[in-house]
Every structure is written in structure tokens, then in C-alpha cells.
Amino acid sequence: MSDKQEFEPRIIYILCSWCGSGGGETAAAHHLHYPENVRPYRVNCTGALPTVHIIRPLIEGADGVAISGCHPGDCHYNDGNFRARRRVALVKSILDTLDLEPERVWFRYVAHGEGRRFVDTATEFNDHIKKLGPNPLKTRSDT
């Protein structure tokens, strides 16, 4: 149990440049804090996020990957977030079929103004991953 308490997850938080990372900026403007082991990773649009960018961190050392794009209807490119949702569904389906813990991938919309929601997502996801424990794949040398 003590192991799990001390476990500091490595988390990749993929953010679109218009809404997700905007949420981060708003959070910063309001001096809201989020766990420092959550590492933001900015992409132009979640609709342009290759599936491999979700899978690769999970094999190479991350304990979880969260993705935040614009709310439905708000995408700067009209439909990027809907396309992202399909890709996330695909990746989760593959991880689920292989019993590779699809719950290590989160997809939640965060708007530019939603600093609170951004911080809450980072925090909640961090807590969620702490509960799940370390990602068994990241220590395997034969991947």
C-alpha cells in the first residue's frame, strides 16, 4: 500500500492549441495549480492527433494519457474534436481487447475559459492513475 501512496505517476496531457491549452492559460491566470507530474503536450488540434501519439507514451514510460480538445461545436476547425473522439474510441477498443487498461486514456473537453475544469481534470486524472498504480508496460524491457 505504501508503494502505491508514494507512486508519482508520469502523465501526458495532450491539449489542443485552441481550447485545451487555453484552459491551462486561464488556470495560470487564476493562479490555479495542478500536479507537476502532469506534462502538457500541445497539438494544433486533437483532430490531427495521430493514434500512435497516444499509444507510444503508454509503452515508453507514461502511466496515463489525457486528451483535451474543444467542446462539441467549438472546434476551431469545425469537426476536429469529433474526429479525435473516433480515434480515441479506436485506441480504447484496441487497448480494451488486449487488456491493456484503456482507463489509462482519458478524453475530456476543456474550453479556453475553463481553467478550473483544466486543473480539475489534471488533478482528477492524476488521482485516478495513482489508484490504478504504475503502468506495467513501462518497465518491460521487451516491448
Binding site: 490555479l32 495549480h33 495542478y34 500536479p35 473522439r85 473516433r86 480515441v88 474510441a89 480504447k92 482519458w106 478524453f107 475530456r108 473537453y109 475544469r117 486543473v119 480539475d120 481534470t121 488533478t123 482528477e124 492524476n126 488521482d127
Partner: peptide, 15 residues
């Protein structure tokens, strides 16, 4: 595909 969207609980203020 709403099942892949992580629902947001307004009251989650873990930090």
C-alpha cells in the same frame, strides 16, 4: 461514442 468522453464532476476539486 459518448462512452469515451470522461464525464466532468463539477464538485471534483481534488487539488
Amino acid at each position: 461514442l459518448h462512452q469515451v468522453e470522461q464525464p466532468y464532476v463539477e464538485t471534483y476539486h481534488g487539488l
